[in-house]
Design a protein around this nucleic acid. Sequence first.
DNA 1: GTTGAAAAAATATTGAG
DNA 2: CTCAATATTTTTTCAAC
Lengths: 156, 156
Amino acid sequence: MELDDTDRAILRILMEDARTPFSEIARQIDMSSATVHDRVGRMEDAGVIEGYHASVDAREVGLGTSALVGFRVKQGHEKEALQQLRDIEGVQEIHLTTGEWDVILRIYAEDTDALRELMFDHVAELKGFSRSQTMVILGTEYDDPVLPIQDPDDEG
Amino acid sequence: MELDDTDRAILRILMEDARTPFSEIARQIDMSSATVHDRVGRMEDAGVIEGYHASVDAREVGLGTSALVGFRVKQGHEKEALQQLRDIEGVQEIHLTTGEWDVILRIYAEDTDALRELMFDHVAELKGFSRSQTMVILGTEYDDPVLPIQDPDDEG
DNA sequence: GTTGAAAAAATATTGAG
DNA sequence: CTCAATATTTTTTCAAC
């Protein structure tokens, strides 16, 4: 889908606060709310907007520990390997990467004990991986939900 | 803040779709929408709900490349090092970690060329880091915006 | 805490330029 | 594509349990 500056302005506002009323978005970008409605609907249909999600403090819901885990996958075992990772409880993101690891996942757990248990119970038994490394997240210094969208004309 | 099962049920729904009408949430959890309104408000005030954000397909807004970058920070340079990372355009998340790296960040860029430029222009000039490694994300296999909240009584 | 009902506000739709 | 006006739905408030 072809996006113009108006679309990008709407996206910036909705990434910042997904519950901003269309009337308020309209005011900010100086258009009618019917236009905002129309554009948002088209961006949803086109998959530009994938969804709207509440951001919840993980500690408040008993998930005090989070980690990044890197894996090396054995040749030919990619598919089954990934499926196994998906099935581990608490796994939130799975990325295929270049560099030291083939796969890096992000996992949440109640505490370091629960995380260790997860790693022993599940990860240790996985087939198709040659090695892994767990990087516990001690703290998140910065986490911006807004992508740095640029208007195509202004060079940043 | 002390959360009960009703609060957690509401959170699950809002993490899945932050724009679910309160009336619909009320129907699902079998309470009135006034109650949902009240509980959501209290969770927002308490910081349990940090915000509501639209999830946007990064490729559609010209950010086709994403990477994880690990850093080793020199003793005593932690503060200035982190501030420098924050200021790099496209940096979305900064995590302090155990293991091979002290800091791992997530960065978005237009393409691999733009990413390489960012790394050369900014990262290479950073003070206080002893080494770094870029892990380009070739693809994201799985990305779940819903935290695996458990009710305290059912053991998972 | 929770509720139902009323009031206020927002969103969805329509028809036309 | 955009708008103004209308219809519908949702959010918000509030007296009462």
